[in-house]
Design a protein around this nucleic acid. Sequence first.
DNA 1: TGACAATTGAAAATGAATATCATAAACTAT
DNA 2: ATAGTTTATGATATTCATTTTCAATTGTCA
Lengths: 145, 145
Amino acid sequence: MNEFDKLKEKLKEKGFKLTTQRRVILDVIMENKNKHLSSEEIYDLVKRKYPEIGLATVYRTLQLFEELGLVYKLNFDEGRNRYELYQEDAHQHHHLICLKCGNVIEMEGDLLEDLEKLIEKTKNFEIVDHNVKFYGYCSNCRNKV
Amino acid sequence: MNEFDKLKEKLKEKGFKLTTQRRVILDVIMENKNKHLSSEEIYDLVKRKYPEIGLATVYRTLQLFEELGLVYKLNFDEGRNRYELYQEDAHQHHHLICLKCGNVIEMEGDLLEDLEKLIEKTKNFEIVDHNVKFYGYCSNCRNKV
DNA sequence: TGACAATTGAAAATGAATATCATAAACTAT
DNA sequence: ATAGTTTATGATATTCATTTTCAATTGTCA
Ligand SMILES: [Zn+2]
Ligand SMILES: [Zn+2]
Ligand SMILES: [Zn+2]
Ligand SMILES: [Zn+2]
């Protein structure tokens, strides 16, 4: 099943409608799988394909997509949200944020199983998700003086 | 060395001044070591001791304290920042956020050494800090129907 | 003490995100 | 396809945390 069928199905399931705007927004997010686009950036890209769209619609749709589990909301401490496509296979990755150039690098793999098990046990806390960011200096910036 | 000496020293080091406002703000943060206060909450508490203080001063000071490494900025996805005292010994803790009641529980211990080593090696990324949040259901909420 | 730079408080400004509301578009059952 | 119902949209106004501005104040140090 492709992303659009997933969208259609999830919308129907909850009584939401499949609109052109929602289709185009998903389209843009899918075309930028490896990026971490902000709401404004998505708005700008969507406007190229659908110039009549309003900014509020983009915000509303991203929020809806997050609730539907289609996208993942990211926060890199910039005072704005970013989004990436939720991919079952590739979702388990962490973000490495360079303090010098600001680049965001992905570290694939989850590697938190042991820690999560320990937390569930010692805190009796049922973990359903996590958010992990590492701050430091990327290979590029390390090599410069 | 206590926190105030640390403040004094770090300020002097960078040519900043030791003001009453800064002293009172640090005071409030120290009196709430285990809490995760927002800027507004800190403002309200500070006003009790120093009613003339302005909100902007609190914001400016918290930003300064973060730069000086005296406090740690936290983000629990509420659209506002929170702060906690930076404690050398106790800083290595993660936050468990309950999706039902919103409570934030601390999980002491770092337990990311292996993962960080792996990242430094495979990505040639020098890690200086990290930010880890776990979302789920706290023991209280698990036991309710 | 006096000079000078840093700091402050009040108010205005910013900017991301949300709410409002009249119009438009999608779905449903005929 | 059509009418009827409901959700969605776009433009705009609004909210709210945070930042900026700027004149007046305060801390530091010789
Ligand atoms: Zn870099
Ligand atoms: Zn990513
Ligand atoms: Zn709870
Ligand atoms: Zn904490």
